[in-house]
C-alpha cells in the first residue's frame, strides 16, 4: 500500500449463503478524498462499509489501512441508549467535557433537548445526537452508512458542510447515500 493512502481495498468479495453480494471490489483513498458507494437495495453497501471498518470479515480480498488510522463510523444503528437522556448518552461517549460540544449542540438545535430522554426525540433528532460523535471525534477517516436519512434540510446542509471541511482538513470519507449530497467524491457502484 502506498504511504499516501488512508485505506486500500484489493479484490474484496463477499458472499452470504453462497449468494455473491459483490466480487473483485478494489479502491484506494487518499487523505482529503471522498468515496461515494452507490447501489440498489441489497447490493451490499452496508456490508462493504462494515468490512472496511473491520466488523465483518470479507469472503475474499484484503483491506489495508494506514498505521494507527483513527476512524469513526455511523451505521444504521445509532448506538444510543433510548432510556437515557441526551446528556447521559453524550457522557457515555466520554464527550461531556469536549470544548466544541456547546456550540455543536446549539448548531444542531439540541441545546434545549439535553435532558430529554432519547426515546422521546424524533428519528431525525436521534440521528443528530448520533452525529455528534462523528462531529466531535478527530478521525482521519469517516465511514457513514446513509447518514442523511431522517435529517431536515438544515441538518443535511450542516452535515455536508462539516464533511467538506473535514475533507479539506485532510480526512478521508467513505459513505453510502441515496440522497444527493453535493460532496465532491469518487463514485463506485455495486450491482
Amino acid at each position: 500500500m502506498e504511504s499516501s493512502y488512508l485505506i486500500e481495498a484489493n479484490n474484496l468479495a463477499y458472499k452470504i449463503n453462497e449468494v455473491k453480494l459483490f466480487t473483485n471490489f478494489s479502491f484506494s483513498l487518499k487523505a482529503g478524498e471522498a468515496l461515494h458507494i452507490k447501489g440498489s437495495n441489497g447490493s451490499g453497501k452496508s456490508t462493504l462499509i462494515r468490512i472496511l471498518c473491520g466488523i465483518t470479515p470479507s469472503s475474499k480480498g484484503k483491506v489495508y489501512k494506514k498505521d494507527e488510522l483513527v476512524f469513526s463510523y455511523l451505521g444504521h444503528k445509532n448506538a444510543l441508549k433510548t432510556y437515557l437522556s441526551v446528556r447521559d448518552n453524550i457522557s457515555l461517549l466520554g464527550l461531556s467535557d469536549h470544548e466544541g460540544l456547546e456550540s455543536l449542540l446549539s448548531l444542531l438545535d439540541l441545546s434545549e433537548k439535553l435532558d430529554v430522554i432519547v426515546a422521546n426525540l424524533s428519528f431525525g433528532q436521534q440521528k443528530k445526537v448520533a452525529l455528534l460523535r462523528i462531529f466531535l471525534t478527530g478521525a482521519d477517516l469517516i465511514l457513514l452508512d446513509e447518514p442523511f436519512v431522517g435529517l431536515d434540510s438544515n441538518s443535511h446542509d450542516l452535515l455536508c458542510k462539516f464533511l467538506e471541511k473535514k475533507l479539506h482538513a485532510g480526512s478521508g470519507l467513505i459513505y453510502t447515500s441515496h440522497i444527493p449530497t453535493g460532496i465532491r467524491s469518487k463514485d463506485i457502484t455495486l450491482d
Binding site: 462494515r50 471498518c53 473491520g54 466488523i55 476512524f71 463510523y73 451505521g75 444504521h76 444503528k77 445509532n78 448506538a79 444510543l80 441508549k81 433510548t82
Partner: peptide, 9 residues
C-alpha cells in the same frame, strides 16, 4: 443498538 459494533472498531 450498535454499541457493540462501535466498541469493536
Amino acid at each position: 443498538d450498535g454499541t457493540l459494533e462501535l466498541f469493536l472498531i
